[in-house]
Design a protein around this nucleic acid. Structure first.
Ligand SMILES: [Mn+2]
Ligand SMILES: [Mn+2]
Ligand SMILES: [Zn+2]
Ligand SMILES: [Zn+2]
Lengths: 147, 147
DNA sequence: TCGATTTCTGGATTAAGTCTAAACTCGAAA
DNA sequence: TTTCGAGTTTAGACTTAATCCAGAAATCGA
């Protein structure tokens, strides 16, 4: 859809094919942190002839080219995050949903000054309950915790 | 080996069988963050008749009974951590090795005061290079990053 | 237009982890 | 002692996210 998606891919050195644009249109603009399977399901909605292999290929390519971050925060769920800037993450105990927490909402001490380490990046990972429930509860995506 | 391992298991409500003690003797005392397979390899050293299923059963039991924490920080690696108290983690980019960073070495802002969330636990996850190399480099366990 | 290159695909494969059903252990009752 | 049964252990089957592969399809360049 978006005309600058083409530009964004080209700029990253990626050939903007139809499949890649379809994947990009979802995964580069979503507010969620979808897994590969969720990307597949989502994109196949308006692009039914899309194979699983292509989704994985494309996601890995986007990560490699720096358009996407790959996050592994919870058991058995690798997810993708289009927000490249530094931010923290909150994981809901019940739903498994991952939410972004603005960088500036938490001051972390002198990480870079840690003796013996050259820290390239860091984030605070929080787990707990989301408050202010009552709301429609959102479409709860991840059943989480099968045990 | 340790006589109080028996006590520790009993206290947690776990029958201290030979296999469980062998696993406990390694995983509850290690400074590393081993995966299930690393636990298996390690323990089979002095306890060759130990099955993969028992290792998984035992590790899951220990997690369930609160003797062990399960961490998922990196691609395709679920590891176990016997240090129950709060602490942070540093992950070496090259080796994938996970190191503990003392809780007090980093001051994190008012996490508990975050509006809209009831944070049960949190940690800072750092990635980068370990400095002061030259040393024997330790037995580098995890090749990491196959891509 | 046509060969070369890249992209895409279904199906096979891999590998971490779980599940199952049978075998084994061991203390206590008979 | 024997027997019994609850709990433990095991090999191997199974599940599933992810990768690999080799041919088909699309795209590109001259
Ligand atoms: Mn588990
Ligand atoms: Mn895998
Ligand atoms: Zn994020
Ligand atoms: Zn740790």
């Amino acid at each position: 859809m978006s005309p600058d998606l083409v530009t964004q891919l080209k700029t990253a050195g990626i050939q903007p094919s139809a499949q890649r644009l379809a994947v990009a249109d979802y995964v580069l603009t979503t507010d969620a942190h979808p897994s590969a399977d969720e990307v597949l399901a989502q994109v196949q909605g308006n692009f039914p002839m899309l194979s699983r292999a292509t989704v994985y290929n494309t996601l890995n390519l986007f990560v490699e080219k720096g358009l996407l971050r790959q996050l592994v925060l919870a058991e058995g769920r690798t997810v993708f995050d289009p927000r490249l800037g530094p931010h923290h993450h909150f994981i809901d105990d019940e739903t498994g949903r991952i939410e972004d927490v603005p960088w500036d909402s938490l001051r972390v001490g002198d990480v870079r000054g840690l003796k013996g380490y050259e820290v390239r990046e860091y984030m605070v990972v929080m787990r707990g309950r989301k408050l202010g429930g009552s709301r429609v509860q959102g479409r709860s995506a991840n059943p989480v915790k099968k045990r």
